[in-house]
């Protein structure tokens, strides 16, 4: 049986100065090894929800917090953020504002230093990560002199340093040029498939993640409207049509007109290749 990695139960949160709740009674579960897309209009509470996963909310941000978040059975209320850092790696949107060391290598070593890991172990762990993410060329460079994509890669490496089972990413490709963005997403897919990391990622450009995500959670005004398999979500009435990614949207429009679903196939194609194959088979 697969273990439950994240269990979010009835979570609400209101920022200190806000008039309304940013999260309202959100409940869902993520099994270990799943790849979850978190979608929603701007301001719907995605970043807020992600910050609940590693305890930044409620330990770091003041406000009214209700409900429980459990990471592998342990409530975030009962453990502190450093302990949670071992379970949950977090990567933020803005690469510049999350890097605090003078070389890429030291940035990766930073969490290990924080935990008092012996020096020789730090070195071997850094070696491992540099090899895994192909960062040999930038290892000794200053994080301020490398490209945005490389900075984001550094942040991911640092988030992986403590070998957390869960990786949480908040719009990490927003500032990147398209190819670097695709590179980062491909890497996340690999971490998920090969290294069995549970990944939960907030993204606006859903199109490029559809081929490897398992489930999608859709937030609207702080409420979880839909959660489930991509297929189920895209066919759900709760999911707004103007949020649909291009390919599924086109397919569903075709389906409405001439009825594609049902007779030969019951799945909605998610990528260009899948759509072309479906049309070709007809």
């Amino acid at each position: 049986m697969v273990e439950t990695a994240i269990k979010i139960d009835n979570v609400s949160f209101k920022y200190r100065n806000a008039d309304s709740f940013a999260l309202k009674r959100v409940t869902f579960e993520v099994a270990e090894g799943e790849f979850i897309l978190l979608a929603g209009f701007s301001g719907s509470g995605k970043s807020t929800l992600l910050k609940c996963l590693n305890g930044l909310i409620p330990h770091f941000h003041a406000g009214r917090f209700g409900g429980t978040v459990e990471i592998f059975g342990e409530s975030t209320l009962e453990s502190d953020t450093p302990q949670l850092a071992k379970q949950v790696g977090f990567v933020f949107q803005n690469p510049e504002n999350q890097i605090s060391n003078l070389t890429v290598e030291r940035e990766i070593a930073f969490p290990l230093e924080n935990f008092g890991v012996p020096k020789n172990e730090i070195i071997s762990r850094v070696d491992e990560l540099v090899a895994l993410l192909n960062m040999e060329e930038i290892r000794y460079r200053s994080p301020y002199s490398i490209s945005g994509g490389e900075q984001q890669l550094t942040a991911i490496a640092a988030a992986l340093a403590l070998d957390p089972k869960i990786l949480v990413l908040d719009e990490v490709t927003a500032h990147l040029s398209p190819r670097s963005a695709v590179h980062i997403l491909t890497l996340l897919n690999e971490l998920n498939k090969k290294h069995k990391k549970t990944i939960i990622i907030a993204e606006h450009r859903l199109d490029r993640c559809l081929n490897f995500a398992d489930k999608l959670a859709f937030l609207e005004k702080g409420q979880l409207k839909v959660f489930g398999d991509l297929q189920a979500v895209f066919q759900s009435k709760e999911f707004p049509t103007n949020m649909l990614p291009k390919i599924p949207s086109l397919f569903l429009k075709l389906d409405k007109k001439i009825g594609l679903l049902g007779d030969k196939t019951s799945t909605i194609p998610l990528t260009v290749d899948e759509l072309v194959a479906t049309l070709n088979n007809r």
Partner: peptide, 18 residues
């Protein structure tokens, strides 16, 4: 230039293949 082609164009070219 480190860019990718837009999805819609990708789709059109793939459809042209068939």
């Amino acid at each position: 230039a480190d860019l990718v082609s837009p999805l819609l164009l990708d789709l059109c070219y793939s459809l042209q293949q068939i």
